[in-house]
Design a protein around this nucleic acid. Structure first.
Length: 422
DNA sequence: TCTGGGGTCCTAGGACCC
DNA sequence: TCTGGGGTCCTAGGACCC
């Protein structure tokens, strides 16, 4: 059996843990730039606030209904996530951290246990130790565990835990789930399935393999088999090396000049380099992209990207910033109202398996030790305090986040620095 | 006025190899 | 009139996930 532990309304719950007055109140968390609604408490869902909608459309409703609005505070959420995952890892090392707020756990190794009792115990422990409410679904496959956790949240009588073990329990569950709510079936495929009269997970589970293969490729077949109790997705317990890393942002205001655009791109490049070093990886390719606001039909649209192959795989901030700017110069067009840019690194290799270059002019040892010092400083005194000059200080591109909560659980060192300065 | 960010996998088709 | 068989690699586009 496989369990899926899923934090309830994760970002909202993180805000609540440190601000109990929010209990019982509608809470929403907005995306970067306070753009879209990306998390809602149950009370906010009940008010009909949809997921992913533009926040400005709901300003009045927020005011009228006294909704607590937060900008996203990813430091806080990342730290809370780690705490929850640490606790789960204490129950079994056989765990896959699937996303910031979800983990699969292998229950197969436990003999003679009552799955429901065990899951309730996990749920209670997480709540007690971190304040985070979770729902748990237990079933023979990952896809069914997803369905079980969905049911655990929707039906109060389950008290947050739903176990699907017998055939009849599974059939009842499949009957109650819409096909578009099945893991792996998105908007396009569910639309197609509806047109064939397939509306519930149970309808879909009865489809023939060849029919599904033809219309939904091999992934559809895997989902089909999983719904019928056959494991196709294994637990990925060890973290694989990332195949690509992206840092991109929508700007708080439009940018036209090269210099601030270059500063923004340099900052994203620096972030990519930092992420690479944390993964002990280097990249052999880098892309930069820029674009205008696609929602503004009144302005000339422009969107371009440029990919550069690096002579030697690297994770040096200095080098990556240099190539990012080289790429940016090739796609920069004056007079354009840019509203987003990003840097992507790919063709990633382990940092100890790098193909050298006979004619390399860079002292890589020196870069490495400089980067170690850079990270050491920034990890202890606060992010990006020490930076490459190209990253600039004007921050014309900085994000709008007018409703940011404190970094309750991670800001101690930074506040010490501030106090020392005072 | 105001609409996020970061990933993965699969397939078809083209180019190329012997 | 008639033109094989088998394979790899790359890319763009589409689909999905959180």
């Amino acid at each position: 059996m496989i369990a899926l532990v899923d934090c309830n309304n994760f970002f909202c719950s993180c805000e609540r843990v440190f601000n109990p007055t929010l209990e019982g109140r509608a809470v929403v968390v907005l995306s970067n730039n306070d753009g879209c609604v990306i998390a809602r408490s149950n009370e906010a869902k009940a008010l009909g606030i949809p997921m992913g909608e533009a926040a400005y459309k709901y300003r009045q409703l927020f005011k009228d209904k006294d909704v607590a609005v937060f900008s996203s505070n990813y430091r806080l959420y990342g730290d809370m996530s780690q705490r929850v995952m640490n606790i789960l890892s204490g129950f079994t090392p056989d765990i896959e951290i699937y996303s910031v707020d979800e983990a699969f756990m292998n229950f197969g190794q436990f003999c003679n246990i009552d799955y429901r009792e065990f899951a309730l115990h996990i749920k209670k422990t997480v709540k007690q130790w971190t304040g985070m409410p979770v729902g748990i679904g237990v079933a023979p496959t990952k896809t069914l565990a997803k369905i079980a956790s969905h049911l655990a949240k929707k039906n109060p009588q389950y008290s947050g835990v739903c176990v699907l073990s017998t055939q009849s329990e599974i059939i009842d569950a499949l009957h109650s789930i819409k096909v578009e709510d099945v893991w792996g079936i998105g908007r396009r495929l569910s639309g197609m399935l509806h047109s064939f009269g397939i509306h519930t997970a149970l309808d879909f589970s009865k489809s023939s393999e060849s029919w599904v293969k033809q219309r939904m490729t091999i992934n559809g077949v895997r989902t089909l088999k999983e719904l019928n109790g056959e494991k196709c997705f294994n637990l990925e317990t060890k973290q694989e090396r990332k195949k690509s890393i992206v840092t991109s942002r929508t700007f708080g205001q439009y940018i036209t000049d090269f210099t601030p655009l270059s500063e923004a791109v340099s900052n994203y490049a620096s972030k990519c380099a930092y992420k690479l070093r944390k993964e002990k990886s280097c990249a052999r390719e880098l892309s930069v992209f820029v674009r205008t606001n696609p929602f503004r039909h009144d302005i000339t649209q422009y969107q371009e990207s440029k990919t550069i192959e690096l002579p030697v795989a690297t994770n040096s901030t200095i080098e990556i910033i240099k190539y990012a700017n080289q790429a940016l110069r090739e796609i920069y067009k004056p007079g354009v109202l840019y509203n987003k840019a990003g840097v992507m690194v790919h063709n990633i290799v382990p940092d100890n398996q790098i193909q050298g270059d006979l004619f390399d002019t860079i002292d890589r040892e020196k870069h490495n030790s400089l980067m170690k010092t850079l990270d050491g400083c920034n990890d202890s005194i606060g992010r990006e305090k020490l930076r490459v000059l190209a990253q600039g200080f004007s921050r014309q591109w900085h994000l709008k986040n007018e409703h940011l909560s404190q970094c309750f659980s991670t800001s101690i060192k930074e506040s010490i620095i501030v106090n020392c300065k005072k």
